[in-house]
Design a protein around this nucleic acid. Structure first.
Length: 483
DNA sequence: ATGTCC
């Protein structure tokens, strides 16, 4: 039964198929799929493709067609709107750690710089190719917001809480209570498709946006069921040791080592669906040349722009609420209150002013806010250090820094070339215990975090170093309780 | 990143 379903899914006509025969992204594609899946379900996929291709080639002839008429009109309307021109010349922007950044990311950044709304940009040393704007890309634009300049996981963030161990030597507490701490992670965190049987209440669910914005309203129930959970991919919750190295640290902590909890996750299904929806809205209203189509923006003076802005901010606050619940549960399990907390997001857009007081929309897609004195967290990998940093407010980076080490290897390449025993040995030798995860998150898929930090010395000062010890990520099905 | 479908 399941097999049959998969087979049908493969045969079903998709947007990808349409784009492969030259269908423009946006309304024509959506309309074509709608019509095919409503009126022509009995036809084979190839036959369906031929049908819509005929309309695409000669839309005029189908204007009055009973079922294909709307498609003809969508295509004609689309053809009548001229694409918005990119600036013809390369626009300057600062690249940090250029020697370690892949070609694809540089190309994407070049295109983003040539958008007519762009006023500045920078590329962080952990940059790699993404969708639209590269991961590690920072883009300042005027009075507009680019959904894919923010990214799919809106408001994805780092959150750290440091606790004084109940013992004087926190390091030894961690090592002698490994089993207990591991169980705490298993009991108090949920990843991927797993969720808590009864989510903890949180004021975020009372936000008016859940009633005022239709798409957000549709997402409310799932947002509630996913409260306090972490996602998949590079998301994690971990115990480790923080070494505070800066005497002038903002927490007034004595130099030394502290037990800490570090989490990385975002806005789950809520943000992903908001991103998907408003990207489509943007691509329908903002027609760009093929190579820039994913950088479609929403004018902030339009209703859609205002709506996205509110929805994006809600998703950011929701991601924060999830982190607070994760840390709250673990603090309760530890029986300790944190003595310091830090939190920052990295897939978001902010209204910020430049030196002259002019306001811009600054997109940081996988980049950490690093304005003067602003604290942030830059993780390495599951088996390498992360850093508590304080921004220097460097204008050339648009007050930003990297959000991690950055990948050197794609997920598919990692699964093809790495081997479990080899990775397990590496992790074990580093003294790290890992629950869940997979080869695509192995430490060796990431750049050397020390090189990345060296490339951004002008952007941040290091306040402390975090050493991961017990890490939980998505994928430990054998431990997972299905709630 | 995402119950991974436009």
């Amino acid at each position: 039964m399941k097999k049959k379903k998969t087979k049908e899914a493969i045969k079903k006509l998709t947007a990808k198929d349409l784009h492969s025969i030259g269908f423009p992204t946006g309304k024509p594609t959506g309309t074509a799929l709608n019509i095919v899946h409503t009126y022509f379900t009995e036809l084979g996929k190839n036959h369906q493709l031929e049908l819509v291709q005929d309309v695409l080639t000669a839309p005029d002839q189908y204007k009055l067609h009973a079922t294909l008429g709307p498609l003809a009109h969508a295509i004609l309307n689309h053809q009548q709107t001229a694409p918005i021109d990119l600036k013809p010349d390369k626009q300057p922007y600062t690249i940090y750690g250029a020697e370690g950044i892949e070609e694809g990311a540089l190309k994407q950044m070049e295109i983003a710089m040539r958008l007519p709304v762009t006023r500045g940009g920078a590329l962080m040393p952990d940059a790699h190719q993404g969708y639209g704007l590269p991961i590690g890309g920072v883009l300042a634009v005027e009075n507009a917001v680019i959904p894919y300049g923010v990214g799919v996981d809106i408001g994805c963030r780092m959150s750290m809480s440091m606790s004084m161990s109940i013992y004087n030597i926190p390091t030894s507490y961690l090592d002698s209570n490994r089993v207990t701490l591991k169980q705490m992670l298993l009991d108090n965190t949920r990843f991927g498709y797993a969720s808590f049987k009864k989510p903890m209440d949180h004021p975020i669910m009372e936000r008016p946006e859940f009633h005022e914005i239709p798409i957000v309203h549709e997402l409310k129930d799932r947002a509630y069921s996913q409260l306090g959970t972490s996602g998949g991919g590079n998301h994690f919750v971990e115990f480790g040791i923080v070494e505070i190295q800066d005497e002038q640290n903002d927490f007034n902590l004595p130099l030394g080592s502290y037990l800490a909890v570090l989490s990385h996750s975002g806005s789950r299904g809520l943000g992903a669906n908001i991103a998907g929806y408003y990207t489509k809205v943007a691509m329908d209203s903002c027609r760009l040349p093929q190579e820039a189509k994913h950088l479609a923006w929403l004018d902030l003076n339009t209703e859609a722009g205002q709506e996205y802005w509110l929805a994006m901010n809600l998703a950011g606050d929701y991601a924060s609420a999830c982190h607070h619940q994760i840390h709250g549960r673990l603090a309760a399990a530890l029986g300790e209150n944190p003595i310091a907390t830090i939190e920052n997001h990295h897939n978001f857009a902010w209204k910020e002013k430049d030196y002259s007081g002019k306001e811009f929309i600054v997109h940081r897609k996988g980049a950490t806010p690093a304005g003067k004195g602003v604290l942030g967290i830059i993780p390495g990998s599951m088996a390498t250090p992360g850093f508590i940093v304080r921004g220097k407010g460097e204008a050339a980076s648009i007050n930003s820094a990297s959000h991690g080490a950055g990948r050197v290897m794609s997920r598919t390449q990692a699964k093809k070339t790495l081997h479990k025993p080899q990775v397990q040995q590496f992790i074990q030798q580093a003294g790290i215990e890992v629950i869940g995860s997979d080869l695509d998150e192995a430490p060796m898929v990431y750049k050397d975090i020390h090189q990345v930090m060296a490339a951004q010395q002008d952007l941040v000062d290091v306040v402390g170093t975090f050493h991961p010890r017990i890490v939980r990520m998505n994928g430990d099905e054998k431990y997972m309780e299905v709630d």
